[in-house]
């Protein structure tokens, strides 16, 4: 461990968690969000040299992505699902993708986080550790609001667990003001799976719309167990439910604009899946 003024550099997870348990520090992975609003009195815990946070590996069920893996590392890893690669491909620009991390994107807790949207729709889980153990949370339980998470002062996000199966049939669109370095105005990710003509999964997540990424599992459930034809017959009801559920907030663009983009993307997603 190296102690600097205003920072600690560690090379293993155990030391990092020990510091988290004893000192008030800001975890620093890639710095691309933190340094935009750099505070003079910030004390950073540098996580970028911790091997446990830089691994990508898979077990039977999950792809494990270390929280301090950069976007470029995730993009270039053959194990990463294409839906995640698509989101990274449209995220910022090369220099930011080289430094920014998936864990930072999640913990910064912006509803505009491009990769958090993918983790939402993919049913990803977060492995969070402190010195006494770990807990594993579905990503939607991690957020309590814009910029607010349930991460405790003594904890670190260690890995993102992405299910290996069922992400093949996806839809992803990011609507921004330009191609590179664009903050999403609306981002939409959907996953649609059928088995023997029956819908087994119809997941949809909306980013940049409200204080957190939005996903409505109860509304998704309406299509599950139905054939495409049956789903088609209740399409207008399905859309009306979302029309009611999505309440966008006004930001750089109007709430009305966000809402209509959300609905257009939702309808396009359904249409592309034959509904």
């Amino acid at each position: 461990m190296v102690t600097f003024s205003n920072g600690y550099l560690v090379d293993n997870l155990a030391d990092a968690l020990k510091i988290r348990s004893e000192i008030d520090v800001t975890p620093y992975a890639g710095g691309t969000d933190l340094m935009v609003d750099a505070k003079e009195d910030a004390v950073y815990l540098f996580l970028n040299k911790i091997p446990e946070l830089r691994r990508i590996y898979s077990d039977e069920q999950y792809l494990h992505i270390g929280a301090a893996c950069t976007y470029t590392e995730i993009f270039e890893n053959s194990l990463s699902p294409q839906i995640l690669k698509d989101a990274i491909d449209y995220l910022a620009a090369p220099a930011i993708r080289n430094m920014g991390t998936a864990g930072g994107n999640i913990c910064n807790a912006s509803p505009k986080a491009d990769t958090a949207l993918i983790f939402y729709v993919a049913d990803a889980k977060l492995r969070i550790c402190n010195t006494s153990g770990e807990r594993i949370l579905p990503i939607e339980d991690f957020y309590v609001g814009r910029g607010k998470t349930v991460l405790q002062k003594d904890e670190l996000l260690v890995e993102i667990l992405v299910p290996k199966q069922g992400l093949e049939h996806y839809y992803y669109k990011k609507v921004g003001a330009r191609q590179a370095l664009a903050i999403s105005r609306v981002a939409f990710a959907g996953i649609f799976t059928t088995e023997n003509g029956i819908i087994t999964r119809c997941a949809m997540a909306f980013g940049s719309v409200a204080d957190t990424v939005l996903r409505f599992r109860d509304l998704e459930a309406l299509f599950v167990g139905k054939s495409i034809a049956e789903a088609k017959s209740i399409r207008s009801q399905f859309i009306a439910n979302y029309e009611q559920a999505i309440v966008p907030i006004r930001g750089r663009v109007s709430a009305e604009y966000r809402k209509s983009v959300c609905m257009n993307l939702l309808e396009d997603f359904l249409t592309q899946n034959g509904i």
Partner: peptide, 17 residues
Amino acid sequence: LNGVLANSCMVAMGSIE
């Protein structure tokens, strides 16, 4: 930075040890 492009405005000194 270690061979890859980085914006030096977004790199804190402690991270480059």
